[in-house]
Structures are given as structure tokens and as C-alpha cells.
Write a protein that binds this DNA or RNA. Structure first.
Lengths: 233, 233
DNA sequence: TAGTGGTCTAGACCACAGC
DNA sequence: CTGTGGTCTAGACCACTAT
């Protein structure tokens, strides 16, 4: 069972629950402190603490004299965590779909071999997938995978799970290094993302390691006007 | 001059000041709530709020039954450059210079006021600086500063030190949130960075906080073909 | 004007640490 | 045991918004 938590925490949980469930939508008015005082039968200071902390956490927005509202949608692209794009899209209440453009096995050229710390010509798995939010392409994922780390990679149905999800399940992730760049979209990438050639793209290049091996190298293209990475220190 | 702030904020400022000045060192015991109640002549709830918020901000650590202590040093986030651009350029063996295009005092519009959590019309310091690596512009830094956190900002010579360096010396940095976007360079930004209008830029927007106040909000434009953020997890 | 949030008071009881 | 932090109460006054 659940340990009994402080009242202010229970109220926070209740408020967050109403928002997470979708019953209270972005921008909507939230019950006033007085209303919550009556609803929970506690003092106003207790309700105040719950609401004030959620405001500090950017879950709610308060306007003196007016009321308390559900804060605007959280930004996307958590840089620190290794969340996958499908979760992120679902977390925003949108529908995630993906189209698998390629899923095959190739030989590593010199550049790739160097990134994987393997011999040139070594076999690598490769996938090319476009991710959609509702009907809009939001990411082109060009991924290379070390067969040792995910032997069943080619047998996955990547319209149902993301490569990231499969890799997380196959090999314990040890760490990742990434670079972020702004680049003009080349012809092919632009076409797949349904943007103009040369349009600014946010390019995330990520290399993950598992058990001392390079497990995966991915280049992810995002239309500049749709993507944004956020983080905090 | 400065508006009178709430008592709990004054207590926070006092506590942070003692730490920032070095009078209270890392790990040291801080006066108890009762002591602060006597010192400031306020109720315990008010003191409690000040200390609780500083605990949430990782400035203090509390141990029930024992006391309140100055928190251990913040771990240095290896995420996205908390380092300043001048150091980075020098580290690459190139010469850093900068040109100060503006250094003045302005009123906050609604957007800025919201970011600073101040009232619209509040006075903010503003600077606009181009950073060069050898003779090439590599960053356009558009920065707004809370006068409370860096009163002497306008008197600095930013061709010699960077705004970042001055801010770090003026107010203990508690944290930062940032967003990274790819955007086409607007006319003015393109001109200052000596690139074509509409060329992809890597835009870093960073908001730093100190003692629960927003100390600084900066937007940094980098030519997409010159800039790259790196990190690891 | 009535309702909202922003702050503050002067108590209280509890769990826990250290002596 | 005393002193600490953790929580909570039942009021209060104020500034602000909406009507």
C-alpha cells in the first residue's frame, strides 16, 4: 500500500492527476483556493502551498485577482533524458505514427567504422524512419546499429515500437554522446520531412554505448520551426 | 530604487548573501528557524518558507532533528556550455574579440517581464555583443539582465570580460534552463553575423536564476555552419 | 463590489537527532 | 530530555480583477 503522504502532497497529486488525465485542459481555470479548502476540508495555507509549488513547477499559472489556470504545454525535446520521440509526442496528447523507409544490413564505410570502433566492412544494421505527429513529419531518423548489441533488430516492427525502445530493451544503455547542429536540409531530407530544400534543420547526432561497445549511431533531422531541445542545469 | 520585497524574499536574500560572500561555507550549519524568527522578528511560517524554498533550489540541505546546512557545491553540468564563449575560443587556440553594439537600460515589455517574473515596464539592463573568433563573427549575444542581480552591469567593459564572467562574479548561479532551436537568420542578425539572410542559425536561449530570481535572459545566435553543441549523458 | 491570489501571524502537534 | 525540522490550523490584511 501507499504510505500516507502530507496533505499538501495529496492535493498536488490530485491536481496533477486531473491535468494528466486530460480532464483539465491547457489554459483552463482550476478551482480556486477557497474551493479546494472546502473540497479537502483543510486550511487555506495547506492548499496554498500545494498550488504555489505547482506554479513554481510550471504546471499551473496564477493571476492575482483572476484565478489559477493550467499552464501552457510543456516544451519538447528533453536533452538530458533519453526519452524517445513516441513518448514525447504522446505526452503532448498528439498521435505518433511512423513510416519505415528502410530496414536492412550494410557494410560499414570508413566513417561509420570509425564511429563504431569496428573494422571497415563490418556488418551493421540500418534503419531509416520518418516520425509523424498527427500528419506532420517531425523527425527523420537515420540509424545504424551494432548487430552484437541488438541481434534481432531487423525483425522488429518499427511502425509499432521505436528503434530506441527496442535498443533499450536489448542492451543496457551505458551512456550517450551527442552533437546538435543547425544545417540546411539537403534535397532528400527536405523531401522526406516535407519542407523546402535548404530550410534550417535541427540535427541531433547521437552515439550510444552499451557494455563498452558502441551500440548505435543515429542522426535525427528535425524541421527547425517544429523542433526545440530544452534542458536545465 | 528597488521595490520592497516580501519578507520571505528578504530572508532568502540574506541567507544567499551570507553564502555568496563566503561567510558561510559549504557544509556549515545555518541558523535554525527559531534563531531566524528571533533575528527577523517574524513568524516561523515566514522563515520556514524562505528556508524551504532555498532547500528546493538546492542552496541549503535540511536534516530533521539536526539542522540546516549550506548545500555542497553544484555539480558542473557537462551538458551544454555553461562555459563562456571566450574561454572556448581561447581553448581552440584562436583569438577572441568582441564588439559591444549596445549597452543600456530599457523597460521590459510583456514577454520579457514574463520571463523575468517582473511587472511589465520594470527596468532591465540590456547588452548586444558580437563575438569574433579571429576575424569571423561566431556569436551574436542579446542579453537582458535583472538589475537587482548585477547592479554594476552597465559599467563593465565587455570588450575585456564577457557578460557571463561578470554575472558569475556578481551573483551565485543557482541554475539555468535553456532551449536550442534552428532558425533562419533574420535580416539584422544575418548582417551582424556576416551571413546570408535566412541562413540556418543555431539559437541558444538561456535563462539563469540566482536566489530564486531570474538573473539573466540571453539569446545567442550562431551561424549554423560554425556552431555545434556537444554533450554526454 | 465580490472573489481571487499574495502574504503573514501565533499558535499547535509530530518525528527525529543528539546529548 | 531539548532542539531541530515537517506539517497544519484558523484566522488576518492587502492588491488585484472582473462585473
Amino acid at each position: 500500500m501507499q504510505e500516507k503522504s502530507p496533505i499538501f502532497q495529496q492535493i498536488k497529486d490530485y491536481l496533477v492527476g486531473e491535468i494528466a488525465s486530460g480532464r483539465w485542459k491547457e489554459g483552463e481555470l482550476v478551482p480556486s483556493e477557497q474551493a479546494l479548502v472546502r473540497q479537502f476540508g483543510v486550511s487555506r495555507m495547506t492548499v496554498n502551498r500545494a498550488v504555489r509549488e505547482l506554479t513554481a513547477e510550471q504546471v499551473l499559472v496564477r493571476r492575482q485577482g483572476s484565478g489559477t489556470y493550467v499552464a501552457p504545454q510543456k516544451y519538447q525535446g528533453t536533452l538530458v533524458e533519453i526519452r524517445n520521440i513516441a513518448d514525447e509526442i504522446r505526452a503532448r496528447g498528439k498521435q505518433h505514427t511512423s513510416r519505415v523507409l528502410a530496414l536492412d544490413e550494410k557494410s560499414a564505410d570508413d566513417t561509420l567504422a570509425a564511429e563504431f570502433d569496428l573494422e571497415p566492412g563490418a556488418t551493421l544494421f540500418h534503419s531509416l524512419i520518418v516520425h509523424f505527429e498527427n500528419e506532420t513529419p517531425v523527425q527523420l531518423e537515420d540509424r545504424w546499429v551494432n548487430p552484437v548489441c541488438a541481434p534481432a533488430y531487423l525483425e522488429q516492427d518499427f511502425s509499432r515500437i521505436t528503434p530506441n525502445e527496442h535498443l533499450m530493451a536489448s542492451a543496457p544503455l551505458q551512456g550517450a554522446t551527442y552533437t546538435i547542429e543547425a544545417q540546411p536540409a539537403p534535397e532528400e531530407e527536405a523531401r522526406l520531412l516535407a519542407i523546402g530544400a535548404g530550410a534550417p534543420c535541427l540535427v541531433l547526432h547521437r552515439r550510444t554505448t552499451s557494455a563498452g561497445r558502441v551500440a548505435s549511431v543515429a542522426t535525427m533531422w528535425h524541421p527547425g520551426h517544429l523542433a526545440r531541445f530544452t534542458g536545465s542545469v
